[in-house]
Design a binder for these strands. Structure first.
Lengths: 206, 206, 206, 206
DNA sequence: CATGAATGAGACTTCATTCAT
DNA sequence: AATGAATGAAGTCTCATTCAT
């Protein structure tokens, strides 16, 4: 039952985050309402509002990363797997691109304005970022096994290559798909971008 | 005199941001203290705290971008100019890497938790991001003139290439120089990284 | 319990008003202190300070008017009832003569300087003023039943007659009993004034 | 010149009051703007904002009362003069009925929410109220001279009679002409009301 | 004399957290 | 275990007043 309540609180918090509430706008009362529980109950499971938020985000990200790792475990060639991973980035972007981009770049938490949230995230961040690094390494290793790349370079280099490849998708979504600065949407289909991103990986490591 | 006061407020705000205060932690009173003026004076020049912060950040970023553009105007080959630009990223990173990375990626504002700050930044963001795009294009054009790259590709492609190259420096600084996730600092000197970053630009566009 | 807290807030507010605090002088903190509750609690029951004040006044006036109407329902002749009503005006005047006079004259709220208080009072005013008009009509109707007056005139005329009669008491109290402008207190007993006021009613309508 | 500036300040303040700004809403800056002078200049002529407002109101009321007294000095019968006085109440009501009614009733200042305004008004009030009493007495004396009334009663009685007569006009304007509580405007012309008011004077003193 | 930029005391209001039920 | 009424610390912003020019 305890696990159930925590889960409900996570869901409530994430539903607010996904609706683009900024962290400091989120009230404990809102979370309680979303989770269909009393405000006081939250404090039975978390020490503070900041704990709730930082752990909720960690919960979300870990789910995402796990998702992507599962894809690698499935049968199929590297090319298929990696393309599927890239394809799966799109729906994640929709949910909360800033947080997502921030984490995928292993950036310090992308939004750290809430008072002590910053420090709390630091701890969670390390854990999350290690998981992401692990995912990246698995990607690289699989491509090695299949001979897509010849040789495993230094950690920084392979990390940077995967990161750039993924950034290709994220940046396109963030900038072009939303027609933000660039005056008109570059006419690429989703599969075009995945193609580009895949090629960048190969170009940088091949 | 008015310009002077605004300037003082900017400096005060930025000094707080540079000390890693999170935006929502910054109090109007703190800014006033740093600027050596009365609290009320701030409201003579800005409509709200959020205005102060968002405009201060815009002021900082515009200064940075201007700085980098000036380097391009100086005499010297593309290689010299671009390496100098990359070299200049290091001190900027020191100041406030999250904000800086966020903007250089043209990401939506990297930290938008403060209530209406989000909306205020949106307007400033567009302006800033246009400036950054302009800088990137200038870089690409100069490399074209000198024949470093043969042909100017689509906007997304050249934007992505410059961005990746710059990210190389930023990520190294953010992750490795601070020994964050990667257990030990990859043994690269600053000039090594600049070399890497330069090569990425050439590799992706050459 | 909720009713209880609101009641406490009303009492606290009215105790301040009765001590001749002007509305804009009253601080939320003062009200809380008087009501023996926390400042924040007030905002659980009211939306703003102005709401507190305007509703407190409405609460007070409605109580007064109800009081007077109850007197009419009691057994006894018109003369007895009406004199009792007039007699009951004295203690009310003591409490807050300006507010009381203002309302009994159906004047727009007598003190409306507090920012949005004005608008809030307008709504309450209409309700209160309707109640007062109702009281006045009941007075007139009872005097008709007993043949004290022969005929019910136009609404303005009977309204004005009752108003004048009541004003007689109020003005005496306001001016003479407090020796304000008139250099020495006119030597009338309370019962003398009631006699005068009663006669004015008869003179104007009889 | 000094007189001129004070005059300008009065005019500025009154223009704000006439536009139904509540006293506590009026800012010193607004007054300065209306008077076309600097904010600081106001403090050359008045000690505080409250002084400005209370003296401005006193200035307005004294003007009104003087006006009415002048009418009595003109040639013509009592009936003509008094009706003219009553007729002149209408435009005054338009300007600021609450203040006007308050003063004509010799009520303590009708709006006393501004902090120390209350005490300041007290001093001015006495002066104004003495002037009003003087006006009332002149009215009564003129009616005596012409034999409209036979005998001068006690001060309270003649004061109350004139007051009621004037109230007749004011209340009609305040309530009926603005269709406030009374559902439809009683169908009286302005001259009808003046007739009523005149008759009340005669009825109560004749 | 006149000004208006600068000031800072002080008020309202919010909201995370507590705790009696 | 669960609640939500109560709390009060703390922050933003206003505006009367001052004073250097």
């Amino acid at each position: 039952m305890e696990k159930n309540k925590k889960e409900m609180i996570y869901q409530g918090t994430l539903s607010l985050i996904e609706e683009n509430y900024n962290f400091s706008q989120i009230k404990v009362g809102d979370i309680a309402k979303r989770a269909n529980i009393g405000k006081g109950t939250i404090y039975e499971y978390f020490d503070s509002k900041d704990e709730v938020i930082s752990q909720s985000i960690a919960y979300m990200i870990k789910g995402w990363v796990q998702n992507l790792e599962n894809i690698l475990e499935e049968n199929g060639s590297f090319q298929q797997s990696y393309r599927k991973i890239l394809r799966n980035l799109f729906p994640m972007m929709k949910k909360k691109h800033q947080i997502f981009m921030g984490f995928m770049m292993l950036s310090k938490s992308s939004d750290t304005s809430v008072d002590s949230l910053h420090q709390l995230m630091e701890k969670n961040n390390e854990d999350i970022q290690r998981k992401i690094l692990h995912l990246y390494e698995k990607i690289v290793d699989k491509s090695l096994e299949e001979g897509i790349i010849k040789e495993k370079p230094e950690v920084f280099d392979w990390y940077f290559a995967v990161n750039s490849s993924i950034m290709c998708v994220l940046i396109y979504e963030d900038q072009f798909a939303n027609q933000r600065v660039f005056s008109r949407k570059a006419a690429y289909s989703q599969e075009d971008i995945i193609e580009k991103a895949y090629n960048i990986f190969v170009k940088l490591l091949g």
